[in-house]
């Protein structure tokens, strides 16, 4: 096995790892705001790519506008999930497991609605910039991978800024530390939950849109991506957004290595085994638990 091949899969692993990381951050944002693990996270990834495709091909909108609109629509759908599924259960003090089951059911419902509204054919999007791949010591890095890495890093930086400097970001962090104390300080905890869903749905959509040109999207890709994102969040220590991003990168690279070593069929099994390994041996992740 030569070095370029290893380098090549390292690059593709980092690209997909960024996507897992963004999805993982989505998990953490909702978890921090509410203590809920939203298993419908994958639906937002799928919707990002699908809605952009529809706007681009059927709506004939310019690419940039289509992407922007798609992210906004998915963020709104995130709020809709919060309002229709999570909020009623939350108000009834449903046990955590019921909440998980409900979001998993929401995932299936969204999947099916997409299937009925669009179709079951795989869709793809054009690459963002149609340029030849950059050569780095014999390793071809395609432009879309660069977009994914650069875009993800920019988003992570923007999120860090948002949580550190803005009033809303600080309020969300306060909710993560202690919801009751935050409520006593006058922070509207309920709107923070809605905002968290909007934010993490938007993150999922962006991840889905950036990824689609390199692979494809279809109504049923959500669950595997949700699981990869969850694994990323676990590796990083659940509830730590930046740990999740790091976890995503590690997962992406490990998976790429596994594909190289055992073939593409083993990709999911390796990822799930990593999850189990972490859950059994170090459930608090590489950075330790949040709080």
């Amino acid at each position: 096995m030569d070095a370029t091949l290893i380098g090549q899969s390292l690059v593709s692993g980092l690209g997909i790892g960024c996507v897992y990381g963004l999805i993982g951050i989505g998990f953490c944002v909702i978890y921090n705001a509410s203590g809920i693990v939203n298993f419908a996270q994958g639906a937002f990834v799928m919707l990002g790519g699908m809605i952009t495709h529809v706007l681009l091909v059927r709506g004939e909108l310019p690419y940039g506008l289509a992407i922007l609109l798609a992210v906004l629509i998915v963020a709104l759908l995130g709020v809709a999930v919060e309002r229709l599924v999570v909020r009623p259960l939350w108000n009834r003090n449903a046990p955590m497991f019921v909440m998980i089951l409900a979001t998993l059911a929401a995932q299936i419902v969204i999947e099916r609605l997409t299937y009925l509204a669009i179709d079951d054919q795989p869709k793809t999007l054009p690459v963002f910039t149609d340029l030849p791949p950059v050569m780095l010591r014999g390793i071809a890095v395609n432009m879309q991978s660069l977009w994914i890495v650069a875009g993800s890093l920019a988003i992570v930086a923007a999120l860090a800024l948002f949580f550190k400097t803005t009033r809303t970001g600080k309020a969300m962090r306060a909710c993560a530390i202690n919801r009751e104390a935050a409520a006593l300080q006058g922070i509207p905890v309920h709107s923070m939950l809605a905002l968290a869903f909007a934010l993490s749905a938007g993150l999922g959509a962006v991840a889905g849109i950036m990824l689609t040109p390199t692979q494809y999207t279809a109504f049923d890709i959500g669950v595997p991506f949700a699981i990869s994102g969850f694994i990323a969040a676990i590796i990083g220590g659940f509830g730590r957004p930046f740990g999740a991003f790091l976890g995503g990168l590690m997962l992406g690279v490990t998976q790429a290595g596994a594909i190289l070593a055992f073939g593409a069929g083993m990709k999911t099994i390796v990822a799930l085994s990593i999850l189990l390994l972490f859950l059994f041996v170090r459930p608090s992740g590489i950075l330790g638990p949040a709080k």
Partner: peptide
Amino acid sequence: RDYQDLAYGTALILLLI
């Protein structure tokens, strides 16, 4: 037939709530 999973999912959410 196409609506089966949709119906199960929706029913499950409504029941849980």
